[in-house]
Design a protein around this nucleic acid. Structure first.
Lengths: 354, 354
DNA sequence: CTCACGCGAGAAAGCGTTTTCTCGGTTCGT
DNA sequence: ACGAACCGAGAAAACGCTTTCTCGCGTGAG
């Protein structure tokens, strides 16, 4: 029983900061703080008896290592950052969720940086977040290509969502919005619609650009159908306020920028006494959870967005661990999800009614 | 022109970690790293000429202070944490958003910890998050009172959401779910409903408990109306799967645990060919953004949840700054939001039909 | 019996900052 | 003209941890 040596140190005075540190544990256990560190990190080169003495002291003092000190010594924070333009948007919420869950399984935490749609802040925000973390996931749909290229090198390890870059070692996870919108348009045409309208998203958004490209391709392949462009945005209100423009367009099939816009639009149409899909068909994009529960249920293009968040972590993890990454980035194909908001076309409506 | 002194150090070799540190800037500017620190922190006790020399060197090397080192020296991280049980739930998304936005305005970042409904993890998660941050916001609706009381002292500065504690200096932000549910029930009764059913939330949830208390009070005050209890949960599927139970209950007015459950239920009723509110009235709770855009639009009790997130930051900030806090915590009254999903009662339905 | 070797634990350096302490050089007052 | 404040900047300590380096002791071999 080689006790007494350390039991005499009954009183432990806390360090300057008031919190229990490695030093207090070392004193209480009668060893050096180096040994405490070894024990806490499961280093087996330490005598079992001493180890248990240290563990006892640590438990008794409820010692919890200070992660900041640890991070400084180790040069890593076990934290990743994500920059999103708008946390109110279900798409980014879902990415965040997938990312957070996947990262948590590997013991990493997530720091969020919401740019609140102020794209001029995104670069600064990204830089700050990056320096606090071991890696970054960047969602910056409105940032210019030039600015993106400029900041990307300083952000490594980095994973981009719905953007691409020429820089090496920067995986891009992009959803093929162009294909998705073509599938939706094709679906409406099969139902007999010949006059479609695209209720666009935010003007400078990258994913809106992809949709527009897809529609151009669609128009080229289907010259017999009219595709009108309507200005829009990305939320409920956009859709709700677009009712007049939609009706004036005379289109019978409406491709909304996303599910939110589609829901706002359907709500507005309903208020006008119009029937969906009887009078007019509406499609969304994304397949957010709510899309199954709208009335009528929403035809949309499903994007495995939570899975994308998870994949973002896997790509980022490979970068952090400096592993060989066979598939740097990937492309997600939306899946057509036909529900009740799209139906056969009525006789074509005439434009400029009322 | 006292140049040359420092311009000779054209080559700057990066530190061990590869990143540019204060040391590199110091060498390039020909000063000590202490001086660089002073300049970077706007300390005016430094000679303007030297200061600008330092700034030039910093700019040229694109020096960005390492926040980890800074945090260690300063004993603060400029980061707060939030623990939520489920990031998929719009309520917590909204809290997070309000919190994040408010904190960002004061230069703080937010670290998220999602417990994924595993309440046994919550305590550990909370502790870990806390140690990495300057303060914590805890949403742990399922944690037992005993466990909560046990961990609370070690989490200070701490703000609780929808929980209370006996510990001092721990503000609680709680929504008065009891009052809200009574308002909703009262509304249905005014419409002539005499047989109500409450589609409950997760059994051990604190906010569900508050609703149940409210309903008890309501029953006591309105002995003429029947209030049935139905088991449930907190998401779409719960509501959707509860259709049979709801119909069997014979109730004409349904109080759903929250908006999600209400939406699931309405969707299920719609599939059965039933009309809301013609055949049956449905109310939700929370007034999530989607509630305005369902068909029919959803009668619900509006909770200023984003504002609550913002308030959480203000309370936490006061704690971090050790300010006097005149109003430690507050209570939020839901506002009855009458929309189209509730209407006059039909002739009472008989239970156990078909 | 002595020497080399190995093992376990303490000493110390290092991570990148901030901040106190100290000291050399001015400047001002007398 | 001499000493006392003063000021600006470098040296060094501190923050809390990990890890390398070093050294003492014990064991086994020659």
């Amino acid at each position: 029983m080689a006790r007494g040596t350390y039991e005499r140190q009954a009183m432990v005075r806390r360090s300057a900061t008031g919190r229990i540190g490695i030093a207090e544990v070392a004193v209480k256990a009668g060893v050096s703080h180096a040994t405490v560190s070894r024990v806490m990190n499961g280093n087996f080169t330490v005598d079992p008896e001493i180890a248990s003495r240290v563990r006892a002291a640590a438990a008794e003092l409820k010692y919890q290592p200070n992660p900041v000190g640890r991070s400084l010594a180790l040069g890593k924070t076990d934290t990743i950052g994500i920059v999103v333009p708008d946390l109110a948007n279900p798409t980014f919420q879902a990415i965040l969720r997938g990312l957070s869950r996947a990262a948590a399984q590997d013991g990493y935490r997530v720091l969020i940086a919401d740019s609140f749609e102020v794209s001029s802040e995104e670069a600064i925000l990204a830089g700050e977040a990056r320096r606090r973390c071991d890696g970054l996931v960047l969602c910056a749909p409105r940032m210019s290509d030039a600015e993106l290229e400029e900041i990307v090198p300083s952000l490594h390890p980095l994973v981009l969502i719905n953007r691409t870059t020429t820089a090496a070692d920067v995986p891009s996870l992009v959803v093929d919005y162009g294909q998705g919108v073509q599938d939706l348009a094709g679906h409406l045409v099969e139902l007999g619609h010949t006059r479609l309208a695209f209720l666009a998203g935010p003007p400078r958004s990258a994913s809106n650009g992809l949709r527009l490209e897809g529609l151009e391709a669609f128009k080229a392949a289907n010259p017999q159908v009219e595709v009108l462009m309507l200005e829009g945005g990305s939320d409920f209100d956009t859709g709700h306020e677009a009712v007049d423009a939609v009706l004036d367009s005379g289109a019978t099939g409406i491709l909304a920028f996303n599910d939110l816009v589609a829901m706002g639009l359907m709500s507005g149409l309903h208020e006008r006494g119009l029937d969906v899909p009887g009078d007019i068909s509406v499609t969304g994009f994304d397949d957010i959870p709510f899309a199954r529960y709208t009335t009528p249920t929403l035809t949309t293009a499903a994007v495995p967005i939570t899975e994308l968040g998870q994949q973002a972590w896997h790509q980022l993890r490979a970068l952090i661990r400096k592993e060989e990454n066979d598939a740097p980035g990937s492309r997600y194909q939306p899946r057509l999800e036909i529900r009740a908001s799209s139906g056969p076309a009525k006789a074509p409506r005439s434009a400029a009614h009322g």
